[in-house]
Amino acid sequence: MNGESSMFVLIALTVITAATPLVFAAIGELVTERSGVLNLGVEGMMLTGAVFSFLCIHVTGNAFLSLLVGIFAGMVMALLFGFLTLTLQASQVATGLALTIFGTGVSALVGQSLIGVAYEGLPKIAIPVLSELPTVGPLLFQHDALVYLSWLLVPAVAIFLKRTRPGLVLRSVGDSHDAAHALGYRVVRVRYIATLFGGGCSGLAGAYLSMAYAPMWVENMSAGRGWIALALVVFAVWQPGWVLFGAYLFGGITILQLHGQGIGINVPSQLMSMLPYLTTIVVLVLISLDQGRVRRNAPAAIGQVFRPTT
């Protein structure tokens, strides 16, 4: 392996670790949004997941249990969101923003004692034989379990949404809750499940940050990734495959921003941090040209409160 390709592998590996939390958070939010629920609390759910999983690994030392705790913390936040917006029918936008603020506060409070605590990070799992291939081996087959999981989760969600009956019901609820209700589907129940799935994914994304990406706890360590995940879902026009592509693109931009300074490219880092959002705006303009694609994939009932009056 020559120096150039090892440099490439090194950068590619950091891109993968930067993209993985985005994949989790965005694919979870995609499922939530496809059911017609707009949860702007991704950032808050990520932070909660991050701090509780790190607390758990600190106390128990059990990585698997800690990941579960991270997922569970995100789901508890999502349950709170669901109770406020689906049961009490509060505004989804306002509640989501409040959830982010709440999650930031709670995580800072819980994490006070964890600042400065060290953890070696999730173990890498090398796939036998394949991991010894030159370049491709380290690139694709020497990761922690969550990277593999993120690669499996995206096609699984794609198949679930497009090819299974529960997926069809979920999409129908997001397209027109009144029509779904008229056919006798349990709109609120479906949305609770989708919201909880989104919360669990966000929690896992947060756990990945504190246990693998930068194995430590720092206050507000998600640093806007929850918002990037939200932008990603729109960027992907609510299609799982594009979420994966977008997460690696945005993850790449994040890393580029770090390495760019190292190599001496003189672009203000603020400009680079803006890139994901700028890209999303450009993509939004571009996709609105193809109305058919939007009509097929965008959940028409997103953000609307469902009041089963009739």
């Binding site: 069809l168 019901v169 129908s172 029509a179 779904a180 008229a182 959940p299 028409a300």
Partner: peptide
């Protein structure tokens, strides 16, 4: 058959029909 159609615009004809019945598309 509803007055204001209870159809899902983003879905196909067969998906819409499958939703109204207990069968896959």
């Amino acid at each position: 058959v509803f007055q204001h159609f209870s159809l899902f615009e983003s879905l196909t004809v067969v998906e819409n029909i499958a939703l109204g019945m207990a069968v896959p598309a």
